[in-house]
Design a protein around this nucleic acid. Sequence first.
DNA 1: AATGTCTGCCCC
DNA 2: ATTCTGC
DNA 3: GCAGAATGGGCAGACATT
Length: 630
Amino acid sequence: MRFSQLASCFLALEATSKRLEKTSRVSALIRQCDLDLLEPLLLLLQGRIYRLIDPREPGVSDRTMIKALQTAYGISPAAIETRWRKHGDLGLVAEELAKAQAQVRLVAETLDLQRVHTTLTKLAVHEGAGAIDHKVRLITELLSHADPAEARYIVRLVLGQLRMGVGEGIIRDAICWAFLPMPKGLFDSNEHCDDAKDNSSGNKTPTSGNRTVFTCDTADDALIIARDNPQALLILPDESAARQAYNLIISTVQHALDVSNDFAAVALVARTRGIGGLQAMDITPGKPLKVMLAQKAESMEKGLASVGLPCQAEYKYDGFRVQIHIDPHQEVSIFTRRLENVTRQFPDIVSMVKDLPGPLILDAEAVGIDQDGSFLPFQSISQRIRRKHRIADSVRRLRVQVHVFDVLYRQGSMLSRPFQERRKAVQELVPINGPLQAATATTIAEEKDAVAFYEKALAAHNEGIMLKAFDAPYRPGSRVGSMVKVKPVMDGLDLVIVEAEWGEGKRATWLTSFTLACQHQGTCLAIGKVGTGLKEKLDDSDEETLTFAAITEALRPLIERQEGRAVWLRPELVVEVAFEEIQKSPSYASGYALRFPRMIRLREDRAADDAASLDEVRIAYEQQYRRGLT
DNA sequence: AATGTCTGCCCC
DNA sequence: ATTCTGC
DNA sequence: GCAGAATGGGCAGACATT
């Protein structure tokens, strides 16, 4: 497959926000692709070079890419930065430079998918002195053969930002459309059909083409028929039944992805062994699963409404997620939320669990504790997560306590069992106290129970609580309403904007990141940045909405100097910023930084002098640890 | 040898 | 991590 | 309700520069 074919598909995917159209285009691509190219195709579609489980990394970001563009197109870094500022995307910069060069250059070799992927793969292999130069050479080499559209996507692939609005959900659905039986009549109005000339393949939409027709009474029947007839076109009594059948087929693919984290493997099984093959795929202790994520609740009341009563509540610890595996040989491995293998970094956790009855998969939070057993701040324990050297020393200095809150595998998969049952398994396996313990939890029958437990959690220096629906299954990789977190709302601070940065991607024409300062004896001292909480679109129903456009215009008259994407400002605009915590920081002049900052509103009534003073920040820093102590 | 810059589907 | 947005 | 794309501080490691 030519890389140009992929690039033109990427262009079309980027041009629409319609999910069904994206799905249709991706499925057409998958269907056309030779089976032995499915692996690189599916990786590149996800904007990845390596598989999720592969520890290799390209090790190239903005700075190295600017060097590569400099070498490839003979343009100075300053000029590249200027264009970057204009487009908000180095891929678009490369495209522009390639266009300009196209008039000078005569012939280029054509790139194919396999070659591009193989070359990108090599980004990780070189280490040691000269590694950056080598990466630059690899990228330059690809760009030298790339037409403008190809250059755009080569750059974005290296940076890992395709910005096409294609994620796992669309690729999953596209695998269904491409390779599995489909109910008739669901997506007939969503054929993208812009390339009507290309009807050679005959079955470009899921419900057309040379499929054998089967009439089914129910969605369940349809699934059984689909399992035995890979080319079936399923006719169901009505649209609702058709939708049900479709959802059953999608969840079969989702299941296969959940247990394998490998799109190419799933696509191949779908193509060669159909639904039965996908159903037969199962969890393998030792191979990580994505973790289930919680939604944030605005209030206790809304949180409880989301999970339903009665429910379970647990402490929300300020540590990091660990998925602990014991394989059939009683071998232990530990994975983070992003499936990094951190077994080597945590020999202490390995010994905590090595005598549990495997095979087993536990979901837990690891928290740092000091000699007295009280919690360490998150930054302390984070020193251990990616450490490669002097690990034994860090194990001694930074002890961890592991709070287990779920069991994903115990004598078989527990994913579809109700949470209540999985939680019971936690109790059976893990003690109440000690370095490995069951997360502190209670049953909530009504709101006042939850409030009391919440206060207890905060008094014990936790971030808040989790609320979990008793009957919910474990949904790997999803952020679901059956599991919500409730955390206290921190007061805001009024701070003055002293610097800003032009945005990237769809925010390229706005200032989108703002450096904030408090004031101290007439000067501004930086205390961090904020870049979220603002809206892209004006909300008519809300007079107060703070948009990127509005703040950009408010700041434009204050610009003193610009360099690349950076903007220095006269410190006059004051904004209210909320955050979770004030931290000591060596990075900012004030000596403090904000954890999880977000913009609340403009304070146009305030002058720079009215911004919070360093003394106020100090007081807020000291005060915050007293929360919940009544 | 010390310091600075860059990177991470990093952790949060 | 938080937040906003389109389907 | 969900997934995707914007954005935050701070950590260790790796390489470049001085």
